[in-house]
């Protein structure tokens, strides 16, 4: 596991802060994707940034 990866233990407990719905880990893009909120939360230096203000809006 590289330093950029998110620890599997974290992936088990994280949900979307807006909808509390599940997140999909996009390893390539380094994002945690909330389909329901249409937001992608960035992972920077292995730290999931679970802030709505910092999330990328997904197109429909």
């Amino acid at each position: 596991m590289s330093n950029q990866d998110v620890d599997p233990k974290l992936l088990e407990i994280l949900v979307c802060p807006m909808t509390k719905g599940p997140l999909r880990y996009d390893r390539e893009a380094r994002e945690l994707v909330s389909e329901k909120a249409k937001l992608a939360y960035p992972i920077r230096d292995g730290i999931p940034i679970m802030l709505v203000d910092e999330a990328r809006k997904l197109d429909d």
Binding site: K9, L10, P17
Partner: peptide, 25 residues
């Protein structure tokens, strides 16, 4: 980011007003 380098390990940025944790974690 600074905390991650320390003793803890698992670190995230989150807002206390909108917590990103599953129930009963």
């Amino acid at each position: 980011s600074r905390a991650k380098g320390g003793a803890g390990g698992l670190t995230i940025a989150a807002d206390e007003e909108a917590l990103p944790f599953a129930e009963q974690s």
